[in-house]
Simulated scan of single mutants.
Amino acid sequence: MNGTIDLNQIVVFVRVIQAGSLSEAARRLNLPKSTVSRKISDLEERIGERLIQRTTRKLSLTEAGRVLFERVSPAMGDIEEAESAVAGMRGTPRGLLRVAAPMSFSPLRPIIAEYLVRHPDVAVELVCTDRLVDLVDERFDVAIRAGALVDSTLVARKLGTAQFMLVATPEYCERHGVPKTPAELANHACITLGGKSTSLVWPLESGSKRTEVRIAPRLTVNDIEMVRVAALSGVGVAWLPKALCADDLDRKRLLHLLVDWSWGDIPVYALYPTRRHLSPKVVAFIDLLAERIRLHDA
């Protein structure tokens, strides 16, 4: 056998045998009959064997042609089934969806559950990490990131903003007082997220006013749910996302402190590698994210 494999020649060969004639194969393939005949001749030339005996009335396979047809026709069926399955994925979400999200992104929990219930043909692999994953190299379909984005070729869809509130329990406030100004936070037990030196300084803003307060953390932890639990236990004051503590505020388990001050709204994005040919599983997930995160006022 000389040269590289030309799959087009193989496809034409199989279609000719299945159709029973060059003319019918050409019609089914929407090709000129001369092109079909040339493909068969080129295949025979490359293999070095005659594959089809041509007469004015019919085609018949040579021994070499029969061996080739028996070997490649099942593979053609598998390819057609695979193509049909992939085409079907354009309509209905299905397959494995790989998602990367920050460890502290609590609004995602009910969204993932709702997505799986809505789309029973999809499986989700959720990786919670504060590391900046490489979507392409690590084969993630979607990544959720909060804060300013670095320059990237990724497509970013803004989902909303995360609003943080300063909170503490009524019991803590009774024992230690309610801070009236940002500066007074330096005298309170604080619960802070993260372990970097930047977590020792809390930036606050109120309209056009900006200030920073150096705090003395009573607890430093990289799990936002642990921050909430510690705040509910009366350990100290903490910044929590509104989406995470709204129910605690409604039930008076937590009090909103320094209501005129905030930590600033943090933008939240869904990132994905490309806009082109997005699969239904990705489109459905991003649409649900946008819908539900706005609903939860994340």
Score class of each variant (00 low, 15 high):
M1G: 15
M1K: 13
N2Q: 15
D6E: 12
L7H: 12
N8G: 13
F13K: 02
F13R: 02
I17G: 00
A19C: 09
A19G: 04
G20E: 06
L22R: 05
L22F: 09
E24I: 05
E24D: 13
E24P: 00
R28S: 07
R28Q: 12
L29K: 07
L43E: 02
L43A: 04
R46E: 13
G48Q: 12
R50C: 07
L51C: 10
L51G: 03
K58R: 14
L59M: 12
E63N: 11
R66Y: 07
R66V: 05
R71I: 12
A75N: 10
A75S: 14
M76D: 10
M76R: 13
G77V: 05
D78K: 14
I79Y: 15
E83C: 09
A85G: 05
V86D: 06
R90I: 04
P93H: 05
G95F: 03
L96V: 12
L96R: 10
L97Y: 01
R98D: 02
P102S: 07
S104C: 07
F105Y: 13
P107Y: 01
R109K: 13
R109C: 04
I111W: 02
E114Q: 15
E114C: 06
E114N: 13
Y115P: 01
V117F: 15
R118K: 15
R118A: 15
H119S: 05
A123M: 12
E125N: 09
D130C: 05
D130V: 06
L135T: 01
L135G: 00
D137T: 14
D137H: 11
E138C: 02
E138Q: 14
R139H: 12
R139T: 08
F140L: 02
F140R: 00
A156M: 03
R157V: 10
L159C: 04
T161P: 00
L166Q: 01
L166I: 09
L166G: 01
A168E: 01
A168Q: 02
A168F: 03
A168Y: 02
E171T: 10
Y172C: 05
E174S: 08
R175N: 04
H176G: 02
G177Q: 06
V178T: 15
K180Q: 14
T181L: 07
P182N: 08
L185D: 00
A189M: 06
A189Y: 05
L193W: 08
G194M: 03
K196Y: 08
S197F: 07
S199L: 04
S199N: 12
S199C: 13
P203K: 13
L204S: 01
G207R: 10
S208K: 13
K209I: 08
T211N: 06
T211W: 05
A216N: 11
P217F: 03
N222A: 11
N222Q: 06
D223E: 08
E225D: 13
M226V: 10
R228E: 10
A230K: 03
L232H: 01
A238I: 05
W239V: 01
L240M: 08
K242P: 00
D248P: 00
L249T: 11
D250W: 11
D250P: 00
R253L: 13
R253Q: 11
H256T: 04
H256I: 04
L257I: 11
W263H: 12
D265V: 09
P267I: 08
P267G: 10
P267S: 10
Y269W: 15
A270I: 03
P273E: 06
V283P: 01
A284Q: 09
F285G: 00
L288Y: 06
A290G: 11
I293V: 14
I293C: 07
R294D: 11
H296R: 14
A298F: 14
